[in-house]
Simulated scan of single mutants.
Amino acid sequence: MFTQPSNILLLSIKPQYADQIFAGTKQVELRRVRTRLQAGDLVLIYVSSPERALVGSFEVEKMLVEDLPKNLNTFWHKVKEKAAVDRKIFDNYYQGASVGVGIFCKNIQRFRKPIHLDTLRKKKPHIIPPQCYRYLTHGELIWVKSMTQ
Results as ranks from 00 to 15, higher is better:
residue 60 V to S: 06
residue 93 Y to C: 02
residue 65 V to Q: 08
residue 130 P to Q: 11
residue 75 F to A: 02
residue 56 G to N: 04
residue 106 K to Y: 04
residue 86 D to W: 13
residue 28 V to M: 10
residue 101 V to E: 04
residue 77 H to F: 11
residue 28 V to G: 04
residue 53 A to I: 08
residue 29 E to W: 13
residue 85 V to D: 01
residue 33 V to P: 00
residue 86 D to G: 13
residue 40 G to S: 03
residue 123 K to N: 06
residue 82 K to G: 00
residue 109 Q to T: 05
residue 99 V to M: 03
residue 22 F to A: 10
residue 4 Q to M: 04
residue 18 A to C: 11
residue 41 D to T: 11
residue 112 R to W: 01
residue 28 V to S: 04
residue 110 R to D: 01
residue 38 Q to W: 03
residue 94 Y to T: 01
residue 20 Q to H: 09
residue 103 I to R: 09
residue 55 V to D: 00
residue 8 I to R: 07
residue 26 K to M: 09
residue 12 S to K: 13
residue 105 C to F: 07
residue 114 P to C: 12
residue 36 R to P: 00
residue 60 V to G: 03
residue 100 G to R: 01
residue 17 Y to A: 05
residue 23 A to K: 15
residue 72 L to T: 13
residue 117 L to Q: 10
residue 107 N to Y: 09
residue 60 V to W: 05
residue 68 L to R: 06
residue 21 I to V: 15
residue 95 Q to A: 14
residue 35 T to E: 05
residue 121 R to M: 02
residue 116 H to A: 04
residue 108 I to N: 01
residue 5 P to E: 04
residue 56 G to F: 05
residue 128 I to S: 07
residue 78 K to F: 06
residue 106 K to V: 02
residue 41 D to K: 14
residue 115 I to A: 01
residue 12 S to L: 09
residue 46 Y to E: 01
residue 7 N to I: 07
residue 48 S to W: 10
residue 69 P to I: 12
residue 90 F to S: 01
residue 48 S to K: 09
residue 91 D to F: 06
residue 32 R to E: 00
residue 111 F to T: 11
residue 52 R to L: 15
residue 97 A to I: 05
residue 107 N to Q: 14
residue 73 N to E: 14
residue 57 S to C: 12
residue 95 Q to D: 09
residue 123 K to G: 00
residue 101 V to N: 05
residue 108 I to T: 15
residue 72 L to E: 04
residue 46 Y to R: 07
residue 121 R to P: 00
residue 104 F to K: 04
residue 66 E to M: 12
residue 24 G to R: 14
residue 55 V to C: 15
residue 51 E to R: 15
residue 94 Y to S: 00
